[in-house]
Design a protein around this nucleic acid. Sequence first.
DNA 1: AGATACATGTAAGTTGTTACATGATTAC
DNA 2: GTAATCATGTAACAACTTACATGTATCT
Lengths: 190, 190
Amino acid sequence: MKMEGGSTPNALLGLLSLRPMSGYDIRQMVSRSIGHFWSESYGQIYPGLKRLAAAGLVEKKTERNKGKPDRNLYSLTADGRERLQEWLKIPVAEETARNELLLKLFFGVHVAMSVNREHVASNMEFHQRALKVYTAMAKQLRRDKANDPNLPYWLMTLNYGRHHSAAILKWCRETLAELDEIESKGKRRK
Amino acid sequence: MKMEGGSTPNALLGLLSLRPMSGYDIRQMVSRSIGHFWSESYGQIYPGLKRLAAAGLVEKKTERNKGKPDRNLYSLTADGRERLQEWLKIPVAEETARNELLLKLFFGVHVAMSVNREHVASNMEFHQRALKVYTAMAKQLRRDKANDPNLPYWLMTLNYGRHHSAAILKWCRETLAELDEIESKGKRRK
DNA sequence: AGATACATGTAAGTTGTTACATGATTAC
DNA sequence: GTAATCATGTAACAACTTACATGTATCT
């Protein structure tokens, strides 16, 4: 009974600390609430919950529904809560995230300028959309979760997204301008 | 002969477009030049080069050295260069990167405030160091690679890092202040 | 009639890291 | 003498995604 390592099982414990959920619920939560900084697929969630149950960190209760399929509701046990708290205390291991956009831009000399511009432009659109989503989510949270002790923490994660997207947006604008400059310099020389 | 998918083989082609290199050289390059947005381990590099050679995208030449061990120098073939260019044109797939710091902060209500503060503080230090590194690298590049057609592109990737780290730094400062506020509010109520 | 939401799970495949195995040379 | 750098590779393991398999109910 190891249950060490990966953050996935710990993420599951964290989500179950909010309320008892099924694997399906968890998937919804991940893509809706924490989708801007986390992801989990069914292939991780269902086997993960099974392992957590075997380790006694979560409890499974099957909810039978007429018409609708059965739901396996998982809830955190005392051991599970303890485990979650221990994990939360462990310093975050910062690994350099791979960034395919930067990799392609790094080799940008090999392609037409329009290609590089396209990459940056679509990244720009991505972060423009993201900013709108963050703002909408923050508004909704402040309305629906006023008085929820989680609120300030949740807003912090949204703020991270805001700062990040705003910065990248600025970089995109600057970079597009620079790409134009490179092109016009190249043309002038011809 | 598939050679589709993953960006790793394409990253290898890109690096070999700069100059012929050995697997060892590539590892050095990755950790020194593009380490702030990419990573590759030997376990990926050596088998990857072998597969690229089998597909005719790179060529291997063994360089025998007295005293020192042999070096397997790989260089890009015409096919390899073409493949690289094709890949560079493919739009970047943006996937949400997992962020363990945000995940832990999201569940911050479960632990003592000092724990959350520590996470944010060490992230702050990380980005402070990163900013210095980016600045030093940009300076060095401008000196060593003036006239290199790659220079503007390489500076763009460094600029991304600058914008990103500066933004996260700002977020860290704001977040530390907010954490202090939550704590003092909690104490006032007692 | 067909798409979407609800609901659970497995299997295969991909991708990646870490540790191991080996061994010479050079700098301290 | 011992640690670091040079140099290549494999094997075992860990993590994660996607597609598949199955079936009902509701909405359009």
